[in-house]
Each structure stands twice: as structure tokens, then as C-alpha cells.
Design a protein around this nucleic acid. Sequence first.
DNA 1: GCGCCAATGCTACACTATAACAATCCGTCC
DNA 2: GGACGGATTGTTATAGTGTAGCATTGGCGC
Lengths: 160, 160
Amino acid sequence: MAAQGAAHAHQTHNHRACIEDALATARELCAARGVQLTPIREKVLQIVWRSHKPVGAYDVLDELSRSHKSARPPTVYRALDFLMGEGLIHKIESLNAYLGCVEAGAPHSGQFLICRHCGATEEIVDRKLETALEAAAKRTQFAAERKVVEISGLCARCAS
Amino acid sequence: MAAQGAAHAHQTHNHRACIEDALATARELCAARGVQLTPIREKVLQIVWRSHKPVGAYDVLDELSRSHKSARPPTVYRALDFLMGEGLIHKIESLNAYLGCVEAGAPHSGQFLICRHCGATEEIVDRKLETALEAAAKRTQFAAERKVVEISGLCARCAS
DNA sequence: GCGCCAATGCTACACTATAACAATCCGTCC
DNA sequence: GGACGGATTGTTATAGTGTAGCATTGGCGC
Ligand SMILES: [Zn+2]
Ligand SMILES: [Zn+2]
Ligand SMILES: [Zn+2]
Ligand SMILES: [Zn+2]
């Protein structure tokens, strides 16, 4: 349990449980949907969940290579694309990195608080913010599909 | 006046005036701030403003090369960094591309509606959305600095 | 066995961005 | 005039991120 990160992660928390929960949820969802959570895909999901900080694709590759020597960039990107497609991870666009989703199974775009100091990134689910986004789009008859919301700054802990 | 894009850009509009306004504002702001809007920087700003679609750095380079044969990637990235620093353009993170700012001079992070079909990208200034972002961050004592809001979907014209 | 499909292996490449150091330009100070 | 200093640009090389395209594998139904 090395690097962690989201607001709650700064508090002591059993991160092993975070990972196990995420993997269990993923297995259930994939089974229910009739898609395959293959060993590679599961391993990549596990690596992304290793901390509460966004992980770069090539960091994933380095880690994945330890167990899958034949891993190459496409191996990782395919797994990441699959996991994003199933809503199990999010891409943090402003960092070109990936983060485990805390609300897997509920389709959403994700809203993130990214600490520029410690890297901790928390996914929040803010209904009012969601409403404001919808309203803003509607104002110009824009049919919103994906909503990228990434707030950078300092988390409570790092601000002090 | 080739490619354009934002919602209002779909309507007939004098895009030459868009460019001239942007350049005039940039000159004033830079003069007032005591920073140099050099020929390269101004040319890059002009290229970014050539349409209302985000422009990639290497597209800027291709275009810039016509007038500045010695232009290289650092030439472009330095100019883009300068223009972003002065709040004259924004980076669209989800596209790795750059767009002229419609509110130059007023510090802000920018909120964008990106049409995935025609590429038209409109910068909006939604006060309620801004408030919702602040509130969401405050809820976890997060000190927000930069706010990335990029809504992808279909613009009114392309939805039909 | 054979055909089919999903997943993976594999090579090469495209696209995005920065490091590091040299050269130039220009205004200031002696 | 000449030395200095800061800002800008020139130049080469390289780092970082992401895909194309095709071969191979392996399971499953017929
Ligand atoms: Zn955790
Ligand atoms: Zn922090
Ligand atoms: Zn703006
Ligand atoms: Zn459109």
C-alpha cells in the first residue's frame, strides 16, 4: 500500500480493501454484461488502483511487464480502452493518466479534484455540478455526451 | 475565412473581425503589461484564431513555417506557453489543441462546448457553472486553482 | 476438422511535448 | 564605445503519449 491519494486516502484507510472492492465490482459487472475481464485487463485494473493517484499508461506498462513480459504499448492501451468502455476507470485528460472509478456501474463522466502537490485525485459525484453542466449545454442547444471536469489545486492536507 | 466553428460561427459572421479583435486586444493587453507580443507570438495567435476549432501545435507549426522557415516545435510551444500565460488562448486538454480565448484579459479557466462532428468549439462563460465548481471544491476543503471544463457532444447544427 | 470471433503478440510508426545549449538582440551601465 | 544582463529565438536531440496494421493464438459451435 504505497502511494495513495484522494481526500479520504490521506486518512488512514485500508487500501487493500479499496482494491478488492474495485476488482470484485469489476468481475460482477463484466460477468453480468457478458464481457471478459481477462487476466491482463484485471491486472491493469489492479495497477491503476494501486494508488489514488492517476497512473500514466507507460507506468502501467512498466508494472505490467513484470508479470507479462510480452506486454507492449498496445497491450496496455487496449486494456485501458476496455476498462474505460466498461466504465471501470477514467482518463484524466489534463494529466494523460488513468484513475480507478469509484462509481463503476453507474454511467457518468466523472468529476475530479486533483492535488498538484501530492497528486492525490478524488472523484466526486456532485449532483448540482452535474445539473449546472447540463444547463450550460442546454442554453446553446448543445447535446452533451461526455463531460470533462478536472479541478486542479491543493487538497486540504497539502494546503496547510 | 475557411473553417470556423463555435455556435455563433455557424451563423454567417465576419470572422476577419474576430481575428482583428483578438489581435487588437492582445496588443493592448501586452502593451499594458509590459510584455512583448513579438511577430512570432502574434503570428501564432493569428493562426490559432484562424477558425473556431481547436488547433494542434503541429498544425500551428506547419502554418507558421510558411512565414518563419526556422520554426521548430520549441518555437511553437514557447509561443503557445506565452499566449496561455497571458490568457490569450486556452488549451483544450481532451484534444491536445489550442483555442483563442473570447474573454482575454479576464482571468478564468474556460468552459468549452466541443462538437465531435464539426469540431466547432465554443467558449462559454457560465456563472452558475462557475459557482457550482467552487462549491464542489469547497465541500472537501479543496483549494481550486485551475478548472478544466470540456463538454463534448453535438452542436445544435450537427444534431439535426 | 473447420470456420469464426475475441483477444493478444508484435513491429513499426505517428503525434505531442520538452531538455539543453548556442546565438542573437537590445537596453543599461560604466 | 564596450561590457554586462535579460529576453527571445535558433538548433539538435530526445522524451512521452498513443495507433495502425497484420500475424498469431485459443475457445466455441458446427
Ligand atoms: Zn484506497
Ligand atoms: Zn494533496
Ligand atoms: Zn477564455
Ligand atoms: Zn457541429
